[in-house]
């Protein structure tokens, strides 16, 4: 469907050119000051003494362990939340049942909970004085201050990302394509794989990217359940904090720069996906 090109509009209702220019200048200035300058500060602080200390800080064994742990946590939490998000989006968008709105609200709940609380709840459950703490201690199972706790806290924090990206898109797409597939004899799995999934793949990818960025960058929640054991339960963000508290500023900013780079790549990819993929359709008015 080609929408006819918008007619050239005579701007009757528009601001004077100087107002326009001033507004743009002001916006660029304020956003630059508030958003861009911090990023520049990270780069400058990290490179204060050239590249050598940066490389040294990142290849330090503790830093490498932190990077490995961060990747491992993301590799577990992101697939879990992708699967859960897909299931949630499928049942919320493609079926009517009582309590649908409530379910969606509950799924978004972790967004409105402080990251510290997201970590705290796991300590309350599995910590030494938690509900299940003694039982776990008897069996020598470590959850808090170990990998399982870090993963659980990360999953909690990144829980809504995929579902939240998919639900509005799938609701907008409606059910008729799936119904058409059913009348043509497709099974449930065939319908999902051949009809639904291709229609949401870019949105799904975008949700997964955001989920991943948050999983790798999460600080508050993992800080509470980590125990800060160097080389063992320190993720990259936590490693930054330790270095900073030890006045190893260059090292702290070097690792921070690495994480900032991840954020920039995520943003660029997301922008690209939104411009070309199915999310663009959601933004455009339906023709």
């Amino acid at each position: 469907m080609r929408r006819p090109g918008g007619e050239p509009r005579v701007e009757v209702a528009a601001e004077a050119p100087w107002v326009r220019r001033l507004a743009i200048l002001l916006a660029v200035l304020v956003l630059g000051l508030l958003l861009l300058l911090p990023l520049l500060a990270v780069a400058t602080e990290a490179l204060r003494r050239g590249w050598t200390p940066v490389v040294a800080a990142i290849t330090d064994p503790d830093a490498l362990a932190a990077i490995r742990l961060t990747l491992l946590i993301a590799a577990i939490s992101v697939p879990v939340n992708t699967l859960g998000g897909l299931a949630a989006a499928w049942c919320i968008a493609k079926f009517d049942f009582p309590g649908r709105a409530l379910l969606l609200a509950l799924i978004e709940l972790p967004f409105s909970v402080s990251p510290v609380i997201s970590g705290l709840v796991w300590v309350l459950l599995f910590g030494a004085q938690g509900w299940l703490g003694p039982w776990l201690q008897e069996r020598d199972i470590q959850i808090v201050f170990a990998l399982p706790g870090l993963v659980l806290a990360t999953i909690f924090v990144t829980f809504p990302f995929v579902a939240r990206t998919l639900v509005p898109l799938m609701q907008e797409q409606g059910r008729s394509a799936e119904e058409a597939a059913a009348t043509l004899g497709a099974s449930g799995w065939q319908t999902f794989r051949r009809v639904t999934l291709p229609d949401i793949r870019w949105a799904l990818l975008s949700g997964v990217l955001l989920c991943n960025a948050r999983a790798m960058g999460e600080f508050g929640a993992v800080s509470v359940v980590s125990g800060h054991i160097r080389g063992e339960t320190n993720t990259m963000p936590l490693h930054i904090e330790i270095l900073y508290n030890e006045y190893q500023f260059v090292g702290a900013f070097a690792v921070a720069g690495l994480l900032a780079l991840l954020a920039l790549v995520t943003l660029a990819a997301k922008a690209l996906l939104e411009r070309s993929g199915d999310l663009a359709r959601l933004r455009r008015p339906p023709a």
Binding site: L31, A213, G217, A263, T266, L267
Partner: peptide, 25 residues
Amino acid sequence: RLLDGMVDLPFALPTAVAGLALTAL
């Protein structure tokens, strides 16, 4: 477009990085 992308920076930037950067500034 760059400005548009920048707006999402606080969403994507790990909070510890933001904290560190703001402190330095």
